[in-house]
Amino acid sequence: MASLSGSQAASEGFAGLGSAAEGFSVPQPGLPFRFPADHGPHTDFRIEWWYLTANLEAPDGTQYGAQWTLFRSALAPREANGWSSPQLWMGHAAVTTSGDHFVAERISRGGVGQAGVVAEPFSAWIDDWQMKGLAAPGSDQLAELNVTAAAKDFSYELRLSATGPLVPHGDNGYSVKSAKGQASYYYSQPFYAVTGSLALPTGNVAVTGKAWLDREWSSQPLAEDQTGWDWFSLHLDTGEKLMGFRLRDAGEGFTSATWITAEGRPEPLPAGTLQIVPVRTAKVAGRRIPVAWNVRIPSRGFDVTTRPLNDQAWMATSTPYWEGPISFGGNVGGRGYLEMTGY
């Protein structure tokens, strides 16, 4: 659900995304993904993203988080060559340490080559930031990736290698977002093993760890009364994964989750199964934000409490939100990423 942060960013930056689909395509259930084509942009949908989060660790055990995101936002459901392209692109990159949170943003127009995504050989880029597929043609284009981003105060280069399959969420990739039926196409690659290096003001750090890539596209992702969301991607020490989110509204909110077995088999959980409760808030960028959560799936006996690596993982971008690495403990331990918007 990291995804939706992008959508909200887009809705503030580029307007109109909370409104009706207006000629854009709308996700339909029962249409299976077709790869590698679906790795590329779906320009007839309003919004789309390639969203990578990585939990990293230096040889000395120091924890880091890294984020690489490319958002696509369309002003019209078509693509064109040159500046008349209605496709807008936005990149967010971040590195989180226990004491610092480095953020950068890029905005670009499509059509001229400054930013874009090609399905095969896979490449997603904006300016000099790139997520480049290394896999041979014909094989899984997302299996091997090289990810780079650079800004004034930080840069990184990560080598990603998938140890499991691509995982569709919801009904075979049709992921419902509200009781009113808003939905998106949504799949993930949660099984990346990472090696790489971070360049920080304090020096270069070699890192290893785990990463999670989300792919999601839609045209009308939010119901009108939904104000924001809390989204978790968790790597359990057991090798299992959990994706879960809650969309907040005036009432109970709308929760959804996918339990992923260590082999990569998704088990979508019914709406309302996931329960999350804030346990600690922190003052971040002038607002109170719940940075630690109790996450439970009673039917599976899953009950953990998360805590952030850095309370202040604030993405001070054109649309600000909280996004940072977390660790959790309870009846199972592990690491993951938390994203919270609309606070």
Binding site: V112, G113, Q114
Partner: peptide
């Protein structure tokens, strides 16, 4: 222009 942007 694109080349320069893509070089940072």
């Amino acid at each position: 222009f694109v080349r320069l942007r893509r070089s940072g």
